[in-house]
Design a protein around this nucleic acid. Structure first.
Length: 132
RNA sequence: AAACAGGUUUGUUUCAUCGCUCUUUAUUUUAAGGGAGGAAAGUCCGGGCAACACAGGGCAAUUUGCCAUCUGAAAGGGUGGGUAUAUUUUCAGGAAUGAAAAUAUAACAGAUAGUGUCACAGAAAACAAGGUAGCCGUUUAUCUUGCAUAAGCGGUCAUAGUGAAAAUGUGAGGUAAGAGCUCACAUGUGCAAAUGGUAACAUUGGUACAGGACAAACCUCAAGUGUUGUAAGGCCAUGUAAACCCUGAUCUUGUGGCGGCCCGUCACAAAACUUCGGUUUAUCAGGGAGGGUAGGCUGCAUAGAUAAAUGAUGAAAACCGUUGACCUUGGUUAACGGGACAGAACCCGGCUUAUAGAACCUGUUUUUAU
RNA sequence: GGCACCGUAGUUCAAUGGAUAGAAUAAGCGUUUCCUAAACGUUUGAUGUAGGUUCGAUUCCUACCGGAGCCA
């Protein structure tokens, strides 16, 4: 099992980000909101992901940084479950923090796992529908 | 000794697992090494660096402003001194007040270069002015015949009153009453001088004057400042417009007819042709306006990226707090809890603001002892 | 990252250094009406925070806090 989190697994292109904001679908599970969109772009990783903590919610840069680091850590340790659920489907993801408070690791882990689980199911169903 | 306030310094350490970023090495993921701060923050100043501009001088705009000295590239900072104001203490005095000392504060050049402002109240707010208070003189009237009352005219600003502020204070002379009107002493300011001091400034006598505050109002004086900021700037890729307008230079150039084209020839000319709708009007350089692109490299670092690394989880040690136990009155031990402010984005130097805990220094208050 | 700017009633705006900080609108109460609206009357409500200059500060200066903006 691979726990690395390299550059290819992150969503870095400005055009892709704009596209995700414009055309992506969303799912909310409070402290977080998830934007997602299936893609056809060729990349070595099945999922490209990014993490957002808005400046409106957290004024101080060190607090934004620490929340982003915890979110990234949760994703890094649990991404293999999402990969198994997705199979060949490729996906762009964006996690947005909605909370005003500084979140603990356990809270982040719980709600992000729920979101990723739901994402796996939803994409599976959608893929089946496309096949039918 | 405790509490509080201010200042300076410091700003936890180690291990395990899983990771991130950069460099070098390897070349398919192997090894080695580097990886946040005192403020990285605010962007308040100064500089480097870059692009553009630039004969010289002035104007405008803007910054700084007691003196000496040290530090610094500069901005700024340190130390000492001077002056002013405030507070406290002591001394003198009946008091008003004065003198000395200590502490704190000061954007602390100029209000006698000029302009402006000073609400309300008040007679008057800076060229002084002059009232239905008051004081004084005088005219008329009254009857109580007076050091009277009322009215009018005039003098005056000491007294009262207004105000944040009322044209220096005390005493004497002077006067109808008064007034720097005059004199003496004092106070303050300007001028030139002497003495002390590197200087700011202080003291002394001379002379002229009596002048309100505000420059954090304009301003004056002295000393300085070219403008814009790394999203600057340079290179590459992608993409478009080979079209339009202006200027200059060059050339026989442009348009139309004929010969299939290159090209040649004929006609006309800044206009030519036309189906009367319109169509066409050379090349090069510079500028304008418009269109397109929405990426990368560099700038760029002995930390260093470009949706932006420096971490997450667990454990231990030291420190602090609470509770319990033991010996005993400050130690040991157990459990639980705590660790601030804050995260580099071109780099330095300062300033400002934030900061748990620890150490040191200063001040205030309380308690105890002498 | 850099550069420039703004904070006044719940809202939109005024106010030359002179004060009880004004106007419209909103909100509350009342009058009118069978009731509501409209109209009329009335009340409440503010200078972002902290210092300084000044007799006096929304205004001038300094430091913070907050909010919008520009760059190729």
């Amino acid at each position: 099992m691979n726990f690395t989190f390299t550059k290819a697994e992150r969503l870095c292109s400005k055009t892709a980000i704009d596209d995700l904001f414009a055309n992506g679908k969303s799912k909310t599970q409070f402290p977080f909101k998830l934007l997602y969109k299936p893609t056809e772009v060729e990349s070595p990783s099945p999922v490209r992901v990014m993490f957002v903590v808005p400046k409106k919610k957290h004024k101080r840069a060190n607090k934004r940084n620490s929340i982003k680091r915890r979110m990234r850590e949760v994703y890094r340790l649990n991404k293999h479950k999402l990969y198994e659920a997705l199979k060949a489907q490729k996906l762009d993801l964006m996690f947005i923090c909605l909370s005003n408070e500084e979140l603990e690791y356990a809270v982040i882990e719980k709600s992000m796992l729920q979101l990723m689980e739901a994402m796996g199911k939803q994409e599976f169903i959608q893929k089946n529908n496309d096949l039918q």
